[in-house]
Simulated scan of single mutants.
Amino acid sequence: MARISEVMTRGVEVIRPEETLQRAAQLMDELNIGALPVCRDDQLVGMITDRDITVRATAAGMEPTQHHVSEIMTEQTRWCTEDQSTDEVMRQMGDVQIRRLPVLDERGQIVGIVSLGDLATRQAQHTDEVLRDVSWPSEPDRPDSNSGARH
């Protein structure tokens, strides 16, 4: 059975919570990525995505040079360990509908990241099920003032 350490991406870039949203967006652009783990003193404290910057910050009118990653990052981030099986991690990703997970070592320090793409290209078994689960439409995370109507 394959382990996450065999398919994960190592050498992952991270960002500190006190960095600006602009710096997070610049780093994502430079690296051509859509998510960054947020770390304080080598410990994972959250994740920030390009979607967070757009939906949580820009839509709220937050100035990217004046606001910090800590203000919009997702806290209590899901993660996995490098010794977990790929099957176990794929189930977790499907259950909570997430496309990437930071990978931690036994000391709780980040050593990589694993994405659905990593699993699909390096571990073909069962990824179709996980993709279906992750992509299934989810409910909005806030009340809809239009009684569920979308235009």
Rank of each mutant, 00 (worst) to 15 (best):
L131F: 08
D50Q: 00
M93V: 03
V14K: 10
T74R: 04
G117A: 12
L31C: 11
R23L: 01
V130F: 00
D41N: 14
D87F: 07
A57T: 07
I110W: 12
Q84V: 10
E75L: 07
T54Y: 14
V45I: 15
E6W: 13
C39S: 10
Q97F: 05
A57P: 02
I4R: 01
G112I: 03
D128Y: 03
G94W: 04
V14L: 11
V96L: 04
C39L: 13
V134A: 00
L116A: 14
L44H: 15
I98H: 04
I33M: 05
D105A: 06
I4M: 01
M28H: 12
D133T: 06
E18T: 13
I48S: 02
E129I: 05
S147V: 09
V111H: 08
Q123A: 11
T49R: 04
G94R: 00
G112W: 03
I53L: 06
E88D: 15
Q43I: 01
R40Q: 14
A2P: 02
A124E: 06
M90C: 14
G117E: 10
M93E: 04
A57N: 06
G34K: 03
D87M: 14
E75G: 15
E129C: 06
E13Y: 03
G61E: 08
V69Y: 04
A24G: 02
T9F: 04
V89S: 09
V96F: 05
P137N: 01
S135Q: 05
T49M: 04
V12P: 01
M1T: 12
I48T: 05
W136I: 02
L27V: 05
R99C: 14
E82T: 07
G11S: 11
A149V: 14
T49V: 15
L31F: 13
I48K: 00
I53S: 01
M90G: 04
I72N: 08
D83L: 11
R142C: 10
T127Y: 02
S85W: 03
L27H: 02
E82W: 12
M62V: 09
